[in-house]
Structures are given as C-alpha cells and as structure tokens.
Simulated assay, not measured.
Amino acid sequence: MAPPRNRRPGFSRRAQYGLFLSYVVAIGGALIAVVLIALSQLNAPAYSALRGAVREVTAPISASLGGVRRGITGVPSGIGQYFGVVSENQRLKKQLRQSGDLVQRARTLGRENARLRRLLQLRDRDPKTVAAARLVSSSPGSTRRYAVLYAGSRQGVRKGQPVRGPEGLIGRVLETSPNTARVLLILDPESIVPVQRTRDGLPAIAVGRGDGLLDIRSADMANAPFLAGDAFVTSGTGGIYPPNIPVGRVTRNSRDSAIARPFAGPDSVDFALVQQIFMPEAPPEPEPTGEASDQPS
C-alpha cells in the first residue's frame, strides 16, 4: 500500500502559522532579554533611559486598566450604596415631614400663647372684666351671626354685656343660661355699634353685613370721606360698649359709607372677655310707702 502524501496528519496551515509565530515570539523575547541584560551591565544610564521611556508608554495604559478594574470591582458596592442612599433619602423625607408637622404645631401654639398672654394682660389691666371664657362655636355660614360663650349667669355674665378679644370687639351678650351665653356678633346685620375714627374722632356707626365685614356709616356728616386704612374704635356712645375698643379697619376709599374688616374675627378667636356695661341704667327710684299727714297743733 502506498504511503500517504501528507506526512503530517492533523496539522493545518493555521496551526503551523501559530506554532511558527510562537517560536518567533519566544526567540524575540529571549533576544530582547539578552539585549536588556547586556545593556544593564554595559551601559547603565542608557538602560535607565530606556526603562523610563517604557514607563512613560505603559503608565497611561496601566492607569486606564486600573480604572476599569476599580470600576468593575466597585459595581457591587455601588449598587449597595445606591439602595442605601434611596433608603436614607426616604428616611430623611419622612423625618422632614415630621419636623414640618412639629414646626406647624409649634407655630400654632405660639400664636395661641400670644393671644392668651394679651388676653391675660387685658384682663389684669381692666378692672371691669366679668369673666374670661372660650368661644366654643360660631355661625359663619348664615346671615345671622351668633357665637356661644362657655360662661353664663353662674359666672356673672348678664344680658347686654360687651364681649371682646385681644384684637378687638366681638359682640354683646344676647341671652344667658347657667353656664353658657349666646353672643350677638358685630358681624350680624342687627348689630349696631357707635364708633369713632382714630385719626380725627369722626363719629360713625358700625353695622354688620352678615358676610364677615362691616359697614361704617357717618353719623353727623354727609359724604364724609373714608380712606383705606382708617381705623375705628368704640366711642362709648349708647352706654353699652366701653370706649377705645378696636372695631374695624376700612378696606378701600369711599364716601358716606365704607366697608371695613373687623379686627377680631370670631373664627380666629379662642378666648374672649366679658366686660361690664360701660354706663348701666340707673336703678328706679323707690316709690313712697305712704302719704304724709298733717297733725293739728
């Protein structure tokens, strides 16, 4: 039997080229190593310069490969930090909402504390105060404006007594029960309060509109000018309301009558003072019990 023509079975040209290139690389590496060893022994300065040039070439490549390696190894920790940051962000948002609620409650308590302090100072300064009590309800949705005061006849509250808050006049007592009283607010259309302007003493009448505002009407002057910002206080006329209690402030310029906003809104007042009537009616004179008779001398 004739021998096969290909005496190297299983070898392809690609394998032959690969084997040849590996030999070339190995021999070239050996020659470069021999040259470098000889250069380091025979000419050390040239070897140092060559080594520095190699470093200059390989340093950027090493830095890039190091950055890639650090990026790959930092992926797990980055994922963990991301989820940690998300949870921390949610926790901080929750804490911020709680802090906002606490700040809001603190502001509300601060405003209420300030109103109560003014009310206490007013009560201590005014010897005519009958009682200090809470306004437990009011009727903002009706044309008739009333409020309920948590103090009644047992606390000395009587019909007709004025009711005021730290900011100004609220109304007057309309009827009483043992522990509560019904207050007619100055916003009610049936409420009429004699007032005067603070800047010149112009007498006027404050009448409720039923919508949270007041009508200020001149009492002795036709076409009296009203300017925005004019403040009106009680004048003491009529004998019910003590003088100089703030009532309302004009909202815009007008003549003969003006719309004013009350200083003390019943919706924003928690506590109120009941005061004595400024000029109570004199008691009736006692009737004579018998007629005088003449005695003969």
Rank of each mutant, 00 (worst) to 15 (best):
A2H: 00
P3Q: 03
R5W: 10
R5L: 10
N6F: 06
R8T: 07
P9V: 05
F11I: 13
S12H: 02
Y17A: 07
G18F: 12
S22L: 15
Y23N: 03
V25S: 08
A26H: 08
I27Q: 08
I27D: 07
I27C: 11
I37F: 01
I37E: 00
A38H: 03
A38E: 06
L42G: 08
L42K: 08
Y47D: 12
S48P: 04
S48H: 13
A49M: 07
R51A: 14
V54I: 14
E56A: 05
L65Y: 05
G67T: 11
V68F: 02
R70I: 12
P76D: 03
G78R: 14
I79W: 12
G80S: 10
Q81Y: 09
Y82P: 08
G84P: 02
V86P: 13
N89K: 10
Q90H: 12
R91L: 14
K94Q: 15
Q98M: 06
D101L: 12
L102A: 15
Q104R: 06
A106F: 09
L109G: 09
E112V: 07
E112L: 12
R115L: 10
L116H: 05
R117F: 14
R118I: 08
Q121R: 09
Q121K: 05
L122S: 12
D126Y: 08
V130K: 03
V130P: 00
V130D: 03
A131Q: 14
A132R: 02
R134S: 10
R134D: 11
L135M: 13
S139A: 00
T143A: 11
R145K: 15
R145T: 04
Y146L: 15
Y146S: 13
L149E: 02
L149Y: 01
Y150F: 08
G152M: 03
S153Q: 03
Q155W: 06
V157R: 00
G160Q: 02
Q161V: 04
Q161A: 04
V163A: 00
R164P: 02
R164H: 04
G165E: 01
E167N: 11
G168A: 03
G171C: 11
G171M: 12
V173A: 14
L174P: 08
E175G: 09
T176H: 09
S177C: 02
N179W: 10
T180K: 15
R182M: 08
L184P: 00
L187F: 06
S191K: 00
S191T: 00
R197W: 04
R197S: 01
T198S: 05
T198E: 12
T198K: 01
P203Q: 04
A206V: 04
A206W: 08
V207Q: 14
R209V: 05
G210N: 13
G210H: 10
G212P: 15
L213P: 03
L214A: 07
R217Y: 07
S218D: 11
A219S: 05
N223W: 09
N223R: 13
A224S: 02
F226E: 09
F226Y: 13
F226V: 08
L227N: 10
G229N: 02
G229A: 00
D230I: 00
V233C: 02
T234E: 04
N244L: 05
I245L: 01
I245K: 01
V250H: 00
N253Q: 02
R255C: 05
A264M: 06
P266F: 13
D267P: 13
A272Q: 00
L273Q: 00
Q275A: 07
P280H: 06
E281R: 12
A282V: 11
P286L: 14
P286R: 13
Q295W: 01
